Amino acid sequence: MPPIPDPGGKERGTLWQWALQAIGGASVALAVLGLFLPVLPTVPFLLLAAACFARGSDRCYTWLVEHEQLGPLVRPYLDGKGLPLKTKIKAILMVWASIAISAIFLVDLLWVRILLPIIALGVTLYLLRLPTAETDAD
């Protein structure tokens, strides 16, 4: 199991920790839905949950990473082995689809419409630079 990252200065019971646990829990719920809905990505939501839990709850982080079905989906990334190719492709497609929808239908400001594809390009480059895990977990 990957060690729990130490974000430093962790205070128990703060509002911030409760918010992180809530976001992590919602991310796990969306990830589980993603197991059954092909459009919804699973691993990115689990990675978000792991990041939130690492800062908000050692118990929840340990539960997620050691979980029989969910743990194997995030452990390769947390161990530095990267993401499965299928996961990378899904994540990149979802990023560009959500950016396109936002830029075309939801945003009126020109500077934001220009900024959104730049952000998507940055996320895409980050995902492409990650190592590709050998097994396709998602």
Rank of each mutant, 00 (worst) to 15 (best):
M1D: 15
P2N: 13
P2T: 07
P3M: 08
P3H: 11
P3G: 13
I4L: 15
D6P: 09
P7T: 06
P7E: 05
G8A: 02
G9R: 01
G9W: 05
G9D: 06
R12V: 10
G13T: 00
L15D: 15
L15N: 11
W16S: 14
W16F: 14
Q17F: 01
Q17D: 10
W18V: 06
W18A: 14
A19R: 05
L20W: 01
A22Q: 11
G25Y: 01
G25M: 08
A26Y: 07
A26Q: 07
V28N: 08
V28W: 00
G34F: 00
L37K: 10
L37Q: 11
P38Y: 05
L40T: 09
L40H: 04
P41H: 03
T42Y: 03
T42A: 01
V43D: 00
P44D: 03
F45D: 08
F45K: 08
L47H: 02
L48C: 11
A49Q: 00
A50D: 03
C52L: 09
C52W: 05
F53V: 04
F53T: 02
A54Q: 06
R55G: 13
R55D: 13
R55K: 10
D58E: 15
C60P: 06
C60Y: 13
Y61F: 15
V65I: 12
V65M: 00
E66L: 03
E66H: 04
E66D: 13
E66Q: 10
H67I: 05
H67F: 10
E68N: 10
E68H: 03
E68G: 07
Q69G: 10
L70C: 03
L70S: 02
P72D: 00
L73A: 10
L73N: 00
L73R: 12
L73Y: 04
V74W: 01
R75C: 11
Y77I: 10
L78E: 11
D79E: 15
L83W: 02
T87Q: 06
K88Y: 03
K90W: 07
K90V: 05
A91K: 09
A91L: 09
I92M: 07
L93A: 13
A97V: 15
A97E: 12
S98Y: 10
S98F: 08
I101C: 14
I101S: 12
S102N: 12
V107L: 15
L109E: 15
L110A: 14
W111P: 11
W111R: 14
W111A: 13
R113C: 06
L116K: 00
L116I: 04
P117V: 04
P117A: 01
I119C: 06
A120L: 02
G122M: 02
T124R: 00
T124F: 01
T124D: 11
L127K: 07
L127W: 08
L130C: 09
L130H: 07
P131D: 04
T132L: 00
T135I: 13
A137H: 14
A137L: 11
D138F: 00
